[in-house]
Design a protein around this nucleic acid. Structure first.
Lengths: 342, 342
DNA sequence: CTGAAAGCGCTTACAG
DNA sequence: CTGAAAGCGCTTACAG
């Protein structure tokens, strides 16, 4: 940074670098953009000049001409209570931010907690102010993915966008297999009255994890008793209510597979209030391996979603999409993590 | 949006609007920027043309000339565990995002969980890619505020930046008064062995809330017994450990004022394990009124930090700072919220 | 491989 | 109040 007469910074431009290196501005620009068609000598001279002058590219000027913003939106469409309560969002947000930062791409955070915000964010995105969007919303009935896609905006969703998986890229953990692993583990630990608390039926996790539960029970030769199935909405409180419901309709349960760690934490509370010990009387298995699993007492045995890999893949796929590639889906394996609750 | 021959969007520019309205591009720009020195007739014509053409300003072109990016960074410098665990961050992040969105200003999320990330984010910000930064970090020993300020970047901190409050704008809740309200409330409910779990001594909340505790005890004519004071790090687990410590050294406590809701939740767990009933045997008072207060069992009586107002003020002050105003501090009142834990 | 030149879409003095 | 013009800092064909 140079300083002008008033001590105000005059940002160094490509022009200063060119003068310093003794080349034209075009050459500097070529070095900046990959160094193609530049002689080694010019290359070196420019790089040295950049170092000496402390040059930093003006992103606005670049964007003006390239038509790209070199930034992406992280769009969260959730009621705000869930964003406040569920640590999964933070994990995802954190690792996407990190992954993008490593590529020097800023993340614009957009939260659509209601229809108004949804509309405003959509308008902003459609105006072309970002190159693409990472979409996170558990409820896949959400029309926002389709609207963005229709507007020609590259989108990668976290979790299968039910109804439009053919047109929207997404990355998801293998929900069904995760559920299968947990239920089989419970069975092999000797449990025979295995209940489940599933997620909402309009979410991929709600559908797939329940399906995995049913399949595995059948494979183990256990009857699928509808009294063993309760539905939650992924909130901790809904887990507690579901557990109470199960206790009432099937008091002889000896295990519960819960479709999220946060709900599992609620189940733990309800079980404790009912005087059931965990894992003595009832084994509890969660899903996510979120920070909530470690905060629970006892700590949760759960299915790990590889959030780090999920984020990395989301970013990679979004870049590919922005680069013109066709949509694709990536399914990542899950893994059983044994702790104290089962 | 018009479509060119290939169906590709050709964004409508100020030029299209000018033609449509029958004025010059300068006039369109003047309407866009406040409508000064524009006749009512031209005003109307331009506005209609904007509506008809669906014109949206190209922010890059604007920024290139104004030198402003019209975006701000939300910089979180915390170890990631705390970001994952503590819902306070989400509340703050959410309301800042919302407040900025209402002014059409994008928020760039930056998370500095370690030295490397801190350095990269600093570099990005210092390059002038954002107009200012909203700084959130509980540990105020953090040098980042000073570094940004030294680089001439407008900063507003959340919470008093110890050591540099004269140079950095900040907004904070009235920590000391909040502590006073809680301790007095506990006293007036008949409690006489009132303990506290404070925050780290290098955070403003750690210092001020403890000071408020001491003062109020003295005013109530209660001795300040050092065995009644334990220190946590704002994590849930540290609250549990602090409670165990207190129970060991001062088994006759009948109340605990805890410097954060999350730690209070940990205290609740420890108390339950020790067989003490809440609020029967021991009353527990939290601080924050975060979502953790409602998730706790029993729900926490706590001190409300007005996060909505805090965010609004942070944004307002940052804009003022960007506009050239001198630093200032805003202290917002706190309020006792009665629930079941005390 | 390299330079000169055009142009991205806007804002802002400057004349009138 | 309004238009014509310069210029923000870059990238990218286009000649050479």
């Amino acid at each position: 940074m140079n300083r002008g007469p008033e001590g105000r910074r005059r940002p160094v431009t490509i022009h200063d670098v060119a003068r310093e290196a003794g080349v034209s501005r075009g050459t500097v620009s070529r070095v900046l953009n990959g160094g193609h068609y530049v002689s080694p000598a010019a290359q070196t001279a420019v790089n040295n000049a950049i170092r000496r002058t402390g040059y930093v590219v003006n992103r606005h000027a670049r964007s003006l001409i390239t038509g790209r913003s070199d930034s992406v939106a992280f769009l969260l469409t959730e009621p705000q209570e869930r964003f406040f309560e569920d640590p999964n969002f933070n994990v995802l947000l954190r690792s996407c931010t990190q992954e993008l930062a490593s590529q020097d791409i800023p993340l614009l955070l957009m939260i659509a907690g209601n229809e108004d915000e949804r509309r405003r964010n959509l308008r902003y995105i459609q105006a072309g102010h970002v190159d693409g969007v990472l979409l996170v919303s558990s409820h896949s009935g959400d029309p926002v993915a389709g609207e963005l896609d229709a507007a020609g905006i590259p989108v990668v969703a976290c979790g299968k966008p039910i109804g439009q998986q053919a047109r929207i890229s997404y990355v998801a953990a293998d929900d069904r297999d995760g559920a299968r692993q947990m239920v089989r583990f419970l069975y092999e630990s000797g449990r025979r009255r295995i209940a489940t608390v599933s997620g909402p039926p309009d979410t991929p996790g709600g559908v797939e994890r329940l399906a995995g539960y049913r399949e595995t029970l059948a494979e183990c030769g256990l009857p699928v008793d509808e009294a063993l199935i309760a539905v939650g909405d992924y909130s901790r409180a809904s887990g507690g209510r579901a557990a109470e419901h199960l206790l009432e309709h099937a008091p002889d349960i000896d295990a519960v597979f819960v479709a999220s760690d946060l709900m599992a934490d609620g189940v733990l509370d309800a079980l404790a209030r009912a005087g059931r010990s965990v894992p003595g009387d009832v084994a509890v298995g969660g899903f996510d391996d979120s920070p909530a699993a470690l905060a629970a007492v006892p700590r949760l045995t759960t299915i790990r979603q590889p959030f780090d890999r999920i984020s990395k893949e989301m970013v990679r796929m979004l870049m590919a999409r922005i680069g013109g590639e066709d949509p694709a889906a990536v399914i990542l394996p899950t893994e059983l993590v044994r702790r104290e609750s089962a």
